[in-house]
């Protein structure tokens, strides 16, 4: 794994520049400003000593990424500087401590040649939010795992109802609320869980498991969202309406490779 060079951001963060350099911002539009002037996602920008970067509130999407030229100067743990508070791994101190007021972020090196992102990568931004309140975001899902154990009615409802993104959501998983999904089957033996797995606990309300998920689990699953769908779901604020749509692994792969290509400069 490569060293992470991005810092995922929520609202309310304020950063003061101690030493000038080049940064880049992408992902959600969190109403970011540099000394009060709007910073648009999808662009690199230079900062000078004393300037202040602020993130006010989610406008479009939920998570933005601030990139440091050359990455952050932090010792990686298990190949990454990503921070997992729950397990005490990674982050600035390697022990999983979340960023706090007064912390200092240092870029590893600061020389680079700036390149312009292709239009396709900039357009990605606009797909983060539903066009209007009535239109659900479509989340492609590769069906599989224990799907055959769910009732026909439940499966019909799973793919033909709107689901609401619940407030109980983090990097481990996102709950969806909607019709109750019922399964007729015995308890299952715990097995490995893929990214995007849609597991259904006894209450019949699905949980989509994301990047910080546990490695194995024993709840039945109807399949797994594609990586692109996971990225989209991670940008949905609570209350957003989503719909599950079955996709073949082959089609999912083609869409994924096309998305990767759009980002290549």
């Amino acid at each position: 794994m490569r060293r992470r060079s991005r810092l995922p951001l929520g609202g309310g963060l304020s950063l003061k520049v101690e030493q000038g350099g080049t940064l880049a911002l992408h992902g959600a539009d969190l109403a970011a400003t540099l000394d009060g002037e709007p910073l648009l996602p999808g662009r690199a920008f230079t900062v000078t000593t004393g300037q202040v970067i602020k993130f006010e509130r989610p406008v479009t999407g939920l998570r933005a990424y601030l990139a440091f030229a050359g990455g952050l100067d932090v010792a990686p743990v298990l190949g990454s500087v990503a921070c997992v508070v729950r397990d005490g791994l990674g982050g600035l101190d390697g022990e999983g401590r979340a960023l706090a007021s007064g912390d200092e972020l240092r870029a590893a090196r600061n020389e680079l040649s700036l390149r312009k992102l292709p239009q396709a990568a900039l357009d990605w931004q606009t797909g983060l939010s539903p066009a209007d309140q009535e239109t659900a975001i479509i989340l492609p899902l590769v069906v599989g795992a224990q799907i055959a154990e769910f009732s026909g009615d439940s499966l019909y409802r799973a793919f033909n109802s709107d689901w609401a993104v619940d407030g109980r959501a983090d990097r481990m998983g996102v709950r969806l609320t909607g019709p109750r999904l019922e399964r007729d089957g015995a308890g299952m033996v715990s097995e490995g869980i893929p990214l995007g797995a849609v597991q259904v606990p006894a209450d019949g309300q699905p949980i989509v498991l994301l990047n910080d998920r546990q490695t194995i689990g024993g709840y039945p699953r109807i399949g797994a969202l594609t990586p692109l769908a996971c990225a989209q779901l991670g940008q949905c604020v609570p209350g957003t309406r989503v719909r599950l749509a079955a996709v073949t692994p082959g089609q999912a792969r083609r869409d994924y490779l096309r998305a990767l290509k759009a980002w290549q400069v």
Binding site: V189, E191, I193, I216, R253
Partner: peptide
């Protein structure tokens, strides 16, 4: 690759291999 009691979960690089 995640081994468990009765199974192994295998995550492959989709940029290198088709299913």
């Amino acid at each position: 690759l995640v081994p468990s009691y009765t199974t192994l979960l295998l995550h492959y690089d989709v940029t290198m291999l088709e299913e």
